[in-house]
Simulated assay, not measured.
Amino acid sequence: MSAAKVMIVDDSFFSRTLLAETLQLGGCEVVGEADSFDSLIETYNNCQPDIVTMDIVMPGTDGFECSRALLMNDPSAKIILVSSMKDEETEAEARRTGIAGYVQKPVDGEYLSNIIKNILSPDTLFEELIESAPGIFNEALSQNITRMTKTPVSFESMDTFDNNYVSQGITTVIGIIGRYSGSMILDLSSEAAEQIVEVLLHRPSKNHEEVLAMVAELANIIAGVACSMLNKKDKSYSLRVSPPSVFFSSSSEIASPNLKIQASYAQTTFGPVFLGIGFKKGAASWI
């Protein structure tokens, strides 16, 4: 295995020098350094590192903002937070941001080397999740719409997720947490949602809030059933869903810059339903 290429982000020259020495002693190659947000993206694109070490305290910003910018630039960027500060709040923020590891200063070279190896090692469990999740979420959607409305569902696959996809009217986003984090996107027209409500309640909807509540609950059921099926497949996934967020607009675009979304269309009696699912590797190692 070739030496891991590492980029160091820290506003302190001494800290960068000390960390570079530690990394080189551990068999890594330091390919770039950045001391501010302004030089971050250009340096990253020029040196194309395998790993980025990120200090929390930066002039005019912080390591979380820098990390979010890096992940917007390259969703596959692998970032290790290196800081003298470590508490539950900063650790939770690091996980939400998508940071792969968190090491406290003073850095132990052996620990840091192990984290880098773990992050860069092939993750067969993640690859299995990426391969099986879309089909399982499709199955969960099909089963539940068919069971609840007594109508058939078929699927039209979409090879790639188009970031310019425009919402049909109602979009629900479900966050997924566990060994890997992810999101499920469910999108359908207001007319389709109203028809589903009428079938389920045996009457027209009373108001728009009732329709939105139904869509949120439907998305929650689909995501929950799919995660249960995946956990049954491998309990180490430990997947669970977060409360749904519902957006109503017939002109909004659906985009997911930090996740590679695998999408499909469910053809239903009520109209097409867009279903997107994506996962990313969460925190690989935390010290």
Rank of each mutant, 00 (worst) to 15 (best):
L186C: 02
E128V: 12
R16M: 03
L125F: 03
F247I: 05
S2N: 15
N46L: 10
I116G: 08
A226G: 12
Q48E: 08
G169E: 07
N73E: 13
T171E: 07
K235S: 09
E131F: 07
W286K: 13
A213R: 01
A4E: 02
S285F: 08
S256T: 09
R16W: 13
R179T: 05
N163I: 02
G182L: 08
G63R: 11
E209M: 09
I51K: 01
E191H: 09
N118W: 00
Y111C: 04
S2K: 13
E65L: 13
N220W: 03
L141D: 09
N258S: 07
E191S: 15
K280P: 04
V225M: 11
L23F: 12
F155R: 03
G63A: 06
P244A: 03
L19M: 04
A69N: 07
V153C: 06
V153W: 03
F155D: 01
S189T: 11
S15E: 10
G101H: 04
D35S: 13
P75M: 00
Y102K: 08
F137P: 00
P243R: 02
L40V: 09
I222S: 11
H202D: 12
S250K: 14
M72K: 13
F126P: 00
F64W: 10
N114D: 14
E21W: 10
S157C: 05
E42L: 13
A69P: 12
L25Y: 14
K232M: 10
L25A: 15
I287L: 10
K280S: 07
A219W: 00
F126A: 07
Q24S: 12
V225P: 15
S245Y: 04
G32A: 04
L186R: 14
V215S: 09
T149A: 08
Y102R: 10
S67L: 02
E89N: 13
P122M: 01
A193T: 12
S250E: 15
Y237K: 04
F270G: 02
G282T: 04
S252F: 15
R68G: 01
P134W: 05
E91W: 02
K117G: 12
K105V: 01
P75Y: 10
P257F: 12
I136C: 08
V173M: 13
L186Q: 07
I79Q: 06
I261C: 09
Y102W: 10
P106F: 09
L125Q: 09
Q24E: 11
S132H: 15
S157P: 10
D108F: 00
L275N: 14
F279S: 06
V273M: 11
Q168F: 14
L218W: 00
D62Q: 11
P134S: 01
E139M: 14
T90M: 14
G135A: 11
L200N: 07
S83T: 15
T124M: 02
D35A: 11
D87V: 07
